[in-house]
């Protein structure tokens, strides 16, 4: 890239936490801001320039007909489109609606549901347009975000780890809570990125960074069932921020269909 790359941030259905990770980069942001031209970032600046953009960060999932059209527009204006966070990458926690009755939710929540225009599902950006890079996490890791941005600016491959949470859990010396206490943990199925925080604080991993490569959820759930975990608990474990990621989704749906038969 010769001139400073033009960077834009777009938000869809999300909590803004991932964009905040970018703002949270404080000192580094100055350096990033020096290396790129931030031309569209509603959370941080009133500057809203039209495309095309060199780097587009997309936060959030697609939940309304308007957004389904808007993402097409964003893609058409993006040279490199990167999703940030679990919502954009897998549909987010709001994809729980995909297994529920959307109309029923509307009736329960809104006084005048007829004014609401929304889709029955919350889906990942990649279900709508091609995505060049997915940055996982709920929220994303600021170090990983910086790494990807710097790598893009330098024109090299970003170093984001593909290993699972257990590797980091062991490196930091935590005792496995599944083995030592029988607490179900998503660590063996989840890609790292957080440094295995939850097991270090006596909680099972929630799967924030989505499925690790080549995961086999069925082996873990099978073992936990044998140990006496109720299937319902395992379904809830799988249906978190990344519940609609194909590997987690497939397993929770399998567990439910198995119960029904």
């Amino acid at each position: 890239m010769t001139a400073k790359p033009r960077l834009a941030v777009f938000k869809f259905a999300s909590c803004d936490g991932c964009q905040l990770s970018l703002l949270d980069c404080e000192d580094e942001l100055l350096a990033v801001a020096g290396a790129v031209e931030i031309v569209h970032f509603a959370e941080a600046t009133s500057r809203m320039e039209p495309g095309p953009y060199d780097i587009v960060l997309v936060e959030g999932s697609i939940t309304t007909p308007d957004d389904a059209a808007r993402i097409q527009d964003v893609r058409a204006n993006a040279r490199f489109l990167m999703t940030i966070g679990a919502c954009a990458t897998a549909g987010g926690i709001q994809s729980l609606r995909n297994w529920a009755d959307h109309q029923e939710f509307l009736q329960a929540v809104y006084a005048r549901p007829e004014y609401i225009s929304s889709l029955a599902t919350s889906t990942a950006i990649a279900d709508h347009v091609p995505v060049d890079f997915e940055l996982r996490g709920c929220p994303i890791s600021r170090q990983q975000l910086l790494e990807v941005l710097v790598a893009l600016i330098d024109g090299r491959k970003p170093q984001t780890p593909g290993h699972g949470v257990c590797l980091d859990c062991k490196r930091r010396g935590s005792v496995c809570i599944t083995v030592a206490r029988g607490v179900p943990c998503m660590g063996p199925l989840t890609q790292s990125g957080c440094g295995a925080i939850c097991p270090a604080f006596d909680r099972g991993c929630y799967g924030c960074f989505g499925p690790a490569p080549q995961v086999q959820p069925r082996s873990l759930t099978g073992h936990l069932l044998e140990q006496g975990a109720p299937p319902r608990q395992l379904v809830q474990l799988l249906r978190n921020f990344n519940g609609f990621a194909p590997e987690f989704r497939g397993e929770s749906e399998r567990l439910i269909s198995q119960q029904e038969t």
Binding site: Q159, H163, G164, C166, L167, K170, R171, C176, G187, P188, L189, A212, Q214, V215, Q216, S219, L220
Partner: peptide
């Protein structure tokens, strides 16, 4: 099919010595 490829066995093994350099 059973193995989760989670690395736990190698981490706890007192002889496994593999590492990465970054």
């Amino acid at each position: 099919e059973r193995c989760l490829s989670c690395t736990n066995c190698t981490m706890v093994c007192p002889t496994c010595f593999c590492s990465s350099v970054n």
